[in-house]
Design a protein around this nucleic acid. Structure first.
Length: 496
DNA sequence: AAAAAAT
């Protein structure tokens, strides 16, 4: 892997004046009977509220300021602890007892100043014995990656040349990205990381490799399973297992079977290992499952209405037909000039190819990425985009989650995200994740939802608005350049 | 349908 350090998210905890005013209530240690996450999140009854007041440290937004930069971490994160271990929110990295090498990585390499809100709350929970499991929900772009990467680095023994931390991700892109973050943050620690994703060379010689000696392994389910099966990934010293995009990793239509299998394999060897589950979204179904699967976890969560990023303005455009969508892309989106990078999400791989071809034939410089491409092509396209060599990327939902590129200011939903099985119901989680590709760490951004002029699309959009309690403004004429300009100015992406 | 990856 080439050195890609500078593309790695580095600003997760860069400070702003807004942060100074955030009050963190340090509640006394709570002695809590185990509370299922679902009990609290369904804040339908007073009972739930009572629980969260009594048993949680509740970190509240201190004041609403009309700041231009709305930081996602300004909003409420509720914590529910399990057991009687006291946790104190870490307002500074110094509070965490990290090694000097790790501190240097944070300050010098990552250029962090202090923990973001989710980091301040979750890191003590991750690091304090008896190392309880953790389920953590936090906004897109709020620094979740740092939480578990730092968690892994701090819990690993650099002198033991055995795998001790394992992180499982839904896509190779995400695995690679997390590896880069870990390498950068752990640069001075001497901790090694290995990425477990399908090799370029699909073939035989794969399993002739040596057993992994790196302390940290990050990868996708299939390859990890394979390494375990072939005894290339020893589990004897594994003490921490991380699921990135955990709701997807544990969803029935996701990677549930693989994930459970890996968990069981580890549990057999080491019953006391710690599990960390991170995502911006956890729907009710997944939540229930998680509550039954992971025992007595500490829990952090965000209310659905607080989850939409205020810094990203959302718009909808009703297009008379499919062809006009392409014209919108061509005449409006592609002609915008310098507003940063853009991701155009489409529903299928075929649409990705079609749109790519259509735009290329009109002379536009775009690239596209989806799961049927050769792995090395995928890597290359994504790297080019991260290096800012390309401005507009057409993509399926491969990169809907987690993809961190701070210069993405505009997301276009060429197709709205819908669930396949339930008759065109909106996929709320995917929508939120797509939107989250813009506005990383509180930056400004905009989303254009291109709707076909039929009931289905209109309804999907309405339901999404209702679900998140967010207003999505309409661009009244799909071909009015002026309206798009106004929208972008409003979003803060265009000057006068 | 997409995603991972190979039973």
């Amino acid at each position: 892997m080439a050195d890609t350090a500078e593309k790695v998210p580095a600003a997760e905890s860069s400070s702003s004046s807004a942060e100074a005013s955030i009050a963190v209530e340090k509640t006394e240690p709570t002695t809590t009977e185990k509370k299922k996450w679902g009990d609290v999140e369904d804040d339908d009854e007073e009972e739930a509220n009572a629980v969260s007041e009594l048993n949680s440290l509740s970190i509240k937004e201190e004041e609403k300021h009309e700041s231009v930069l709305e930081e996602p971490e300004d909003s409420n994160i509720k914590a529910v602890t399990s057991g009687d271990t006291p946790y104190t929110s870490a307002s500074r990295f110094e509070d965490l007892n990290l090694s000097p090498e790790l501190m240097k990585g944070l300050y010098v390499e990552m250029k962090f100043e202090k923990p973001s809100k989710i980091q301040a709350i979750s890191l003590p929970m991750i690091m304090t014995p008896p190392h309880k499991h953790l389920i953590a929900q936090a906004h897109n772009g709020s620094g979740k990656t740092t939480c578990f990467v730092l968690g892994m680095l701090s819990r690993v023994d650099p002198n033991l040349r055995e795998p001790q931390a394992l992180c499982i991700c839904p896509t190779r892109e995400l695995a690679n990205q997390n590896v880069e973050v870990l390498q950068k943050m752990g640069k001075f620690t001497g901790i090694a990381v290995e990425v477990a994703v399908p090799e370029r060379t699909r073939g035989v010689s794969n399993m002739r490799r040596d057993a992994v000696s790196a302390q940290v392994v990050i990868g996708t389910p299939g390859t990890i399973k394979k390494w375990i099966a072939f005894k290339k990934l020893g589990l004897n010293h594994l003490k921490i297992l991380v699921f990135d995009e955990a709701d997807q990793m544990l969803a029935t239509d996701g990677f549930r079977d693989d994930s459970l299998r890996i968990m069981k394999d580890i549990e057999r060897v080491n019953p006391t290992f710690q599990v960390l589950l991170f995502s911006a979204t956890f729907n009710e179904t997944v939540k229930d499952f998680v509550a039954r699967t992971v025992k007595d976890p500490n829990q952090l969560f965000v209310k659905r209405e607080d989850l939409a990023l205020d810094s990203v303005k959302q718009y909808k455009v009703v297009c008379p037909n499919e062809q006009t969508k392409i014209e919108v892309i061509k005449d409006q989106i592609m002609e915008l000039g310098d507003i940063g990078q853009t991701i155009i999400f489409v529903r299928t791989k075929v649409s990705a190819n079609k749109l790519h071809k259509a735009l290329a034939e009109m002379g536009y410089d775009v690239t596209s990425v989806h799961g049927s491409m050769e792995n090395e092509d995928r890597d290359k396209i994504v790297k080019e985009f991260k290096d800012c060599l390309t401005q507009v990327l057409i993509a399926t939902d491969v990169i809907a989650r987690g993809f961190d590129q701070q210069r993405v200011n505009l997301v276009v939903n060429y197709n709205m995200p819908t669930k396949h099985d339930s008759g065109g119901e909106p996929d709320y989680e995917v929508y939120l994740h797509r939107v989250g590709r813009a506005g990383r760490f509180g930056r400004k951004g905009a989303v254009f939802n291109l709707l076909l002029d039929d009931r289905r699309d209109i309804e999907v959009m309405e339901k999404i608005e209702k679900y998140f309690g967010a207003h999505v403004k309409e661009i009244k004429s799909w071909n009015s350049e002026e309206e798009y300009k106004i929208a972008l100015k409003e979003a803060g992406l265009l000057d006068e």
